[in-house]
């Protein structure tokens, strides 16, 4: 993760001599030996399954009987499934809501916390605490909060201020914002820590200079803090987009995609293709949709980094 976005000071780097002979000379063999365990782990647990998924997306298989090659049929099946577009819409809605609430909240919290002189460590620990709570436990906890009866935790609190009980997860319009609220609570701590670390890299002289120029808090944040954080903000933005496009845990555990498919996301649909049918799932369709999602995200990331190439530094 990039924590300090200041441009590196130019340094004199001697031009490397053209390499001659096999690469294993000059310590290459030792490097390879040290790399080997990691290569094996990555090959077995990451690259091989990815390769298998690509193959499987062109097959019809239940992983027990022999697989048959079906060409592009799985891709056609997925693209003609009306639920796909519901899932795409829901995922985009989740991503939008998460950007709207989940993106600024950690930034504001980090900026405020960096301004605090006392107990900064305590605030940091408190902000990070939800990240330490196991996600399944957090969801179970929030299910209690979201209890839709008038005696539910949130509804009791709303009752104190004269607001009627809300159906939370039991309503197609409210369910997704409810998921985003929990997801923001659960993930904000990690992003706050990243921002706090980046903020320590902002030279105090810049703030002093701004103060001498008569800048207030808001102008200091706008003209000093945000420009210095720009690189980190760009990275956390794309990480959030990729993360929200793959949202699974919250809809799976809170609502199972309901009510009436209003929280069925792309990853939940992939899961349903593979596992919802107890007689052997459609692993071909599941891997086909996974590949399509990966391709879209890869293209999006490439375009994003190309467009923002010059924005990383002030």
């Amino acid at each position: 993760m990039i924590l300090d976005t200041r441009p590196a000071a130019p340094a004199h780097v001697p031009r490397a001599r053209p390499r001659r002979g096999p690469r294993i000379r000059g310590g290459g063999l030792a490097s390879l030996v040290f790399l080997l365990p990691m290569l094996v782990v990555f090959t077995v647990f990451s690259w091989l399954p990815i390769g298998q998924a690509v193959v499987m997306s062109f097959q019809q298989t239940n992983l027990v009987s022999d697989a048959t090659f079906v060409g592009l049929e799985n891709f056609r099946t997925v693209l003609s499934d009306p639920l796909l577009w519901t899932a795409v819409e829901n995922t985009l809605w989740f991503a939008f809501l998460a950007l709207l609430f989940g993106y600024p909240v950690p930034l504001v919290a980090a900026v405020l916390m960096s301004e605090v002189r006392r107990f900064r460590g305590l605030y940091g620990a408190l902000a990070y605490l939800p990240v330490v709570v196991p996600p399944v436990v957090a969801v179970l906890l929030w299910k209690f909060f979201y209890d839709a009866s008038p005696t539910g935790v949130f509804n009791t609190l709303l009752g104190y201020v004269g607001v009627d009980a809300l159906p939370w997860l039991q309503d197609a319009d409210l369910a997704m914002p409810a998921l985003v609220l929990e997801a923001t609570w659960a993930a904000a701590g990690g992003t706050i820590i990243i921002y706090l670390a980046a903020l320590t890299g902002v030279a105090p002289e810049l703030y002093e200079a701004a103060e001498i120029d008569g800048a207030g808090v808001w102008r200091k944040v706008w003209h000093v803090t945000l420009p210095r954080l720009r690189g980190v903000l760009l990275v956390t933005f794309i990480l959030q987009i990729i993360g929200t496009a793959q949202v699974f845990l919250e809809p799976f555990l809170f609502t199972g995609g309901g009510p009436a498919n209003s929280t069925t996301t792309i990853l939940l649909l992939i899961y349903d293709y593979a596992f919802a049918n107890s007689l052997g799932g459609d692993y071909g369709a599941a891997t086909a949709l996974s590949l399509m999602l990966a391709a879209v995200l890869a293209v999006f990331s490439a375009v994003y980094f190309r467009l923002t190439r010059g924005w990383g530094t002030s």
Binding site: L63, A274, F275, A276, N277, S278, L279, G280, G281, Y283
Partner: peptide, 13 residues
């Protein structure tokens, strides 16, 4: 315990 959503994963795995 038979459950529609976990059975097929256990079967395949």
């Amino acid at each position: 315990n038979w459950e529609a959503t976990t059975f097929t994963a256990q079967l395949a795995g």
